[in-house]
Structures are given as C-alpha cells and as structure tokens.
C-alpha cells in the first residue's frame, strides 16, 4: 500500500534541496542591487551625479526603486532627525531579506557639522543595523560603487536557509 504522506514529504524534501542548490548557482549571477534612497537635505543633491550620465550607476546594476518592498539596499544620506529616522525605520522594516543599510556622508554617521544640534541623530547604529559606513562630505561616487561591489561579494558568502 502506498503511503501518500511519505511520498509527499519526499517530494517536498527534494524540492527544497533542489532550491538550495539552485540558490547557490543563482547567487553567482547576482549582479544587481536595487536601491531605495532615503535622502535628507543636501544628501540628495550631492548624490544626484551618481544617477546622471557621467557616473551612470545602472552600468553597475544599481537601480533606484520606488518601493521599499522591491529594494535590497537602503541608502541613507543627509542629517537625520528623530522624526525622519522613524520613517527610515519603517522603510527598513518593509524591505525583504536579505537587506543592507548604507550610511553615506558625515552627517548621517555622526551628525557631521550638526554635531551640536539638539535635533539630529548622533549615532545611526543606535537606530538601524548599518551594514557599511561610507564617509565623506559628500562621499565620492567611486566610494559608493566600491561599497556596492562589496555587497555583491558578500551575497555569495551569505548562509543558505
């Protein structure tokens, strides 16, 4: 007599195994990072060239998306206030795993030139798990690309689940 439950289990088991192998293979083809931008004040204007034709970021597979649910990476730039960091946290919670937070620029990291303001965030790591800090005022586009390459390397090292 056939045992349908066992038979089904076998299928599911093989399917998951197959998926893991598939993941490992697929991961080598990962060459794109979709980015959601959370830019305050001058953070946006200083990083506009990254999108523009001179340092075209889509050459390297970076693409700005319009919803956090599609995003792999969250770019935070400009000084953050207690009000804006709450929205950044909401965006981070909506992103699917695996997700990375990049802090761009001096203001985001430590408050920068607004270190003595009563209404800025002094340590971003108190609010969000930061994957990489990119210093500079503003950071050079090359530095951002370097960070993204490091993420792509990191993706291949991620544990299988």
């Amino acid at each position: 007599m056939r045992k349908p439950s066992l038979f089904l289990n076998q299928i599911i088991c093989t399917a998951s195994d197959y998926m893991i192998t598939k993941k490992k293979v697929m991961r080598k083809f990962v060459r794109a990072v979709w980015v959601f931008n959370w830019f305050n004040s001058c953070g946006f204007t200083e990083l506009c060239p990254v999108v523009g034709s001179r340092w075209d970021m889509e050459r390297f597979g970076m693409k700005a998306v319009n919803s956090p649910r599609k995003a792999d990476a969250l770019f935070i730039a400009g000084y953050q206030t207690p009000k804006s960091i709450k929205r950044a946290q909401q965006i981070y919670e909506q992103m699917p795993n695996p997700k990375f937070v990049f802090a761009l620029g001096a203001c985001t990291l430590t408050g920068g030139m607004y270190w003595d303001s009563y209404n800025t965030i002094k340590r971003l790591e108190d609010y969000l798990p930061v994957f990489m800090y990119i210093p500079g005022c503003p950071p050079r586009p090359e530095a951002i690309y370097d960070a993204v390459f490091k993420v792509l390397e990191h993706v291949e090292e991620l544990p299988d689940k």
Partner: peptide, 18 residues
C-alpha cells in the same frame, strides 16, 4: 517638527543648545 522632545522650547534666547 520636534517629535519626542523633552527639553524647553529650543528657539528661546536663554536656551543653551550646545
């Protein structure tokens, strides 16, 4: 603008923000 603000009103002249 000031969410979760506990201190005095910040634009007062006698408020030492630093």
């Amino acid at each position: 603008f000031l969410e979760d603000w506990q201190g005095p009103p910040p634009f007062l002249k006698d408020f030492n923000w630093r």
